[in-house]
Design a protein around this nucleic acid. Structure first.
Length: 815
RNA sequence: GCCGAAGUGGCGGAACUGGCAGACGCGCACGACUCAAAAUCGUGUUCCUUCGGGAGUGUGGGUUCGAUUCCCACCUUCGGCACCA
């Protein structure tokens, strides 16, 4: 009986048993409340690393605890298997991406199993399986039919290393680099597929009814970047109308010139003959520039006069039309009114090119502004001056009144601008779901009919990137017939962004092999929506935004119901390497969990990851502290397998205080696990273990309190360290399985303290601690506090001016 | 520049709504066991101290009987955005 704790023996044993028994199968059960716990699916990049364990093991513990609390828990797992990293790795090793991906999946599946998590593998979904991407393609077609997918020629972000376009969200940092490989992106004019995420901008700003971290909500809100203002219609002297967007319509009378983006469609038309050469040179120059140069705020503003003029609709003034690359075609209307007196950029530009600066807002508490002598623009609100009929309007009404004025005179209207761009989903790469569209010379763009899905990705392709889509180079793949006229036609040779695959994967878990639809409606009705989603915050404006957009689009298509797919989101922090850098294969600093599991066992690694960091924070990896957890589990083991010295308790308080600790721990663990505070759970469990050991020394063995303590401890550690819990549960003769037991209930009466430590302060400083009965009255507490020797010493004969008693906690004596 | 988060022992980190700062661990020191070491167990461990106390949660102020917690200013670190009109 007194054998050593050997995780290498017990962990595989129980994993096999659970597997054989289907212990973690999640099936519809109308009798139990459901709980869909989802954790982000991994990319099959080769090995499971510490980061995966760090997200998944605590998420598993929380899911397990919910199960013990009587919920029917779905905790599925799958692989986000399409995409660039797999393909790039395959190129480097010169093996087929498919082979590479699937062998990695086989490996990672084994690693995931070693964690002892309660994944229901029958529900595994792999996004690169035809039975999966068939539905990715089907969803694309649904969006297309709803007008939410469209094809457009645009200047798009292109990664010259990965040889593909990227979504705006996948270009990161101030150097505007590719999110995958860190290479600065360039612009290319290409015809590409986009999803109309901008249609949902306002809805995506609404987080009502979901419990998501403030941080993510802020990031998404900033990314969407809503700003209110007005569109104002200007006219060129030639009579062409164009509209400008401004957030400061109250400064309209101060517009002394207008600026078009170099790509603006009116540029050629407004350009006067004698300015043509300069304008064309400037346009050519700015197309050549990278985004980094062009969008850098450091760079001095440049521009050229077109020789054309526009009419300011509010005062009929003739203002020069310039072009400048600080005006972006992709935001607002690609044209601005320039109000140098009240906009820093316009001011800089006006001073450089000698254009008029005319103040039309007089901010309070400042000297009357003079356009000739101003040193900088002032963006403050204030009283409108020199503004025709609106002169004298005060700060808080200016914008509103100007919009009303514009609308009344039909020269503009209130408008909203967004920073977010439509989601570019075409990729010129091989390893992805083909875009199910066909191009016919006579019928144009045609969707592939549903019954021809999936459009299979061919295996026999030269997948190495050339800058062209690999599928384009395949000898026969793109040749097809038009679904409309049956004449020869060509397939779209691009594949879809992998973020598209991962925008709906949680729906496929419901019924991964269902052939009739995206999901089995019975499963959907029972399991959805997701009750809790766990994963990294680094996906804030990519995956986590796409998922919400996708769901809303699916809702509008009548495929799903409700406004949000995930009711609650919790982000873990990141585990950095020992060098405080992100773990990555290229840096060679990846910490391998397998090695630790071999050395200490999965239970120890699970508990350590929960114990060592605040889950939401993460931090640099260190295994120095792991000894604490190792020792703890050995102590737990000994508690159940060591010699039990029965006998008489030294006094009856031993039993009562043991029971108190047991019930206090139930409370703490239950609260903390549902708040995703895993480190304090392990602390509480260690404390309980220590308390039981102390009680053992005090002769508690065999008492009812002892029996209860053993029982509860095993139930409480079961979600954290499932294998040792199961082993010890069996060894003390309890019926298999501990994971089928109900979660213990805390008894408030038992958890209550009989005695409390009353803190005694004098002038807010701690002077004494006295032990008193828990239910002590305020007057009695005051009396005892004043009687304290330490207090008397402090008072030194002085009379207390005031005595504050906080019930059951402290007495503060003010002198 | 703008937005957000965080600064607590040698280290990881606790502290519910303003009420015992440093739980639980690591490490370290000393002790027990041992021929010895490891492991294990026990004791101690914020700093200073004349042993009465004093100081202490990034810095400086403020509110309060009382502040790690609330308010103001600043410093540092991290994350995000960045000519968005």
């Amino acid at each position: 009986m007194a054998d050593k704790y050997n995780p290498a023996d017990i962990e595989p044993k129980w994993q096999q048993r659970w597997e054989a028994d289907g212990l973690y199968h999640s099936d519809i059960d109308p009798k139990r409340p459901k709980y869909y716990a989802l954790t982000m699916l991994p990319y099959p990049s080769g090995d499971l690393h510490m980061g995966h364990w760090y997200t998944m093991a605590p998420a598993d513990a929380q899911a397990r605890q919910m199960r013990m609390r009587g919920y029917n828990v779905l905790f599925p797992m799958g692989f986000d298997a399409f995409g660039l990293p797999a393909e790039n790795a395959a190129i480097k090793r010169n093996i087929h991406p498919k082979e590479w991906t699937y062998s990695n999946i086989a490996n990672m599946r084994q690693q995931l199993r070693s964690m002892g998590a309660m994944f229901d593998w029958r529900r595994e979904a792999i996004s690169s399986d035809p039975e999966y991407y068939r539905w990715t393609q089907w969803l694309f077609l649904q969006l297309y039919k709803k007008g939410l997918a469209y094809r457009k020629m645009a200047a798009v972000d292109w990664c010259p290393k990965d040889n593909t376009t990227l979504a705006r969200e996948q270009v990161v940092g101030e150097n505007r680099v590719c999110e995958r490989c860190g290479t600065p992106v360039i612009k290319k004019n290409l015809e590409q597929w986009f999803f109309r995420i901008t249609n949902y901008a306002d809805q995506l700003l609404n987080f009502d009814g979901i419990d998501w971290p403030e941080k993510i909500r802020t990031l998404q809100t900033n990314w969407i970047g809503r700003s209110e203002g007005a569109n104002v219609i200007f006219r060129t002297e030639g009579g062409d109308e164009f509209s400008i967007f401004t957030t400061r319509p109250d400064t309209l009378w101060g517009a002394t010139f207008v600026v078009l983006a170099p790509e603006h469609p009116l540029v050629a038309k407004v350009t006067a003959k004698n300015h043509k050469a300069a304008v064309e040179a400037y346009v050519a120059e700015s197309t050549r520039r990278t985004d980094i140069e062009r969008e850098s705020t450091e760079r001095e503003k440049t521009g050229v006069f077109t020789g054309g003029y526009a009419i300011n609709p509010v005062n009929g003034e003739r203002v020069p039309i310039w072009i400048a690359d600080y005006v972006l075609m992709t935001y607002g209307t690609g044209a601005i009114m320039a109000v140098p007196a009240h906009d820093e950029r316009d001011f800089e530009f006006a001073r450089k090119y000698g254009l008029e600066v005319r103040p039309v807002i007089q901010p309070p508490d400042s000297e009357p502004l003079d356009g000739n002598t101003m040193k900088e623009a002032t963006a403050h609100f204030g009283e409108m001056i020199n503004s025709g009929p609106l002169t004298g309007t005060n700060a808080d009404e200016g914008v509103k009144k100007t919009i009303a004025y514009l609308e009344k005179n039909k020269i503009g209207e209130g408008a909203v601008g967004y920073r977010i761009r439509d989601w570019l989903i075409s990729r010129q790469r091989y390893w992805g779901a083909p875009i199910p569209m066909v191009y016919c010379k006579t019928c144009g763009v045609q969707p592939v009919p549903d019954d021809q899905l999936p459009v299979l990705l061919p295996d026999d392709v030269e997948w190495k990137p050339t800058g062209e889509s690999p599928l384009k180079l395949h000898p026969s793949w793109k040749q097809t017939i038009c679904p409309n006229c049956n004449e020869p036609a060509e397939r779209d040779t691009d594949t879809m962004d992998t973020f598209m695959c991962s925008s709906w994967y949680f729906l496929r878990y419901l019924s991964p092999h269902y052939e009739k639809a995206l999901f089995d409606p019975k499963e959907y009705d029972y399991w959805m929506p997701i009750d809790v989603y766990t994963g990294g915050a680094e996906h804030a404006v990519m995956h986590l935004l796409y998922v919400r957009f996708f769901w809303k689009a699916l809702r509008d298509l009548g495929i799903v119901e409700g406004h949000e797919p995930m009711l609650k989101l919790r982000n873990q922090g990141q585990i950095l390497s020992t060098d405080h850098q992100r773990m990555s294969k290229s840096r060679g600093n990846v910490v391998d969990p397998d090695e630790l599991v071999r050395q200490y066992g999965a239970d120890t690694v699970r508990a350590y990851l929960m114990f060592a960091y605040r889950w939401s924070e993460g931090g640099p990896w260190s295994d120095e502290n792991i000894q604490g957890v190792v020792r703890w589990l050995y102590r737990v083991w000994d508690l159940f397998t060591g010699k039990e010295e029965g006998g008489r308790m030294r006094d009856k308080d031993v039993g009562r205080s043991l029971r108190r600790k047991v019930h206090q721990t139930i409370k703490r663990v239950t609260t903390d696990i549902n708040e995703f505070e895993f480190n304090t759970i392990v602390s509480a469990l260690m404390e309980l273990t220590n308390a039981i050991l102390e009680a053992k020394d005090a002769g508690a063995v065999g008492s009812p309190e002892w029996v209860e303590a053993q029982d509860v401890l095993l139930r409480l550690i079961a979600p954290v360290t499932p294998h040792i819990a199961e082993e010890l549960w069996t060894r003390i003769g309890k019926p298999y399985s501990v994971h089928l037991q109900p979660w213990p209930e805390a008894n408030d009466e038992a958890a209550k303290e009989d005695e409390i430590t009353l803190v005694v302060q004098v002038n807010g400083k701690l002077r004494d601690r006295i032990t008193v009965p828990a239910g002590i009255s305020d007057t009695e507490a005051e009396k005892r506090a004043l009687a304290s020797e330490a207090v008397q010493r402090q008072l030194d004969g002085k009379k207390p001016r005031q005595v504050i008693v906080v019930k059951g906690k402290l007495v503060n004596i003010v002198v």
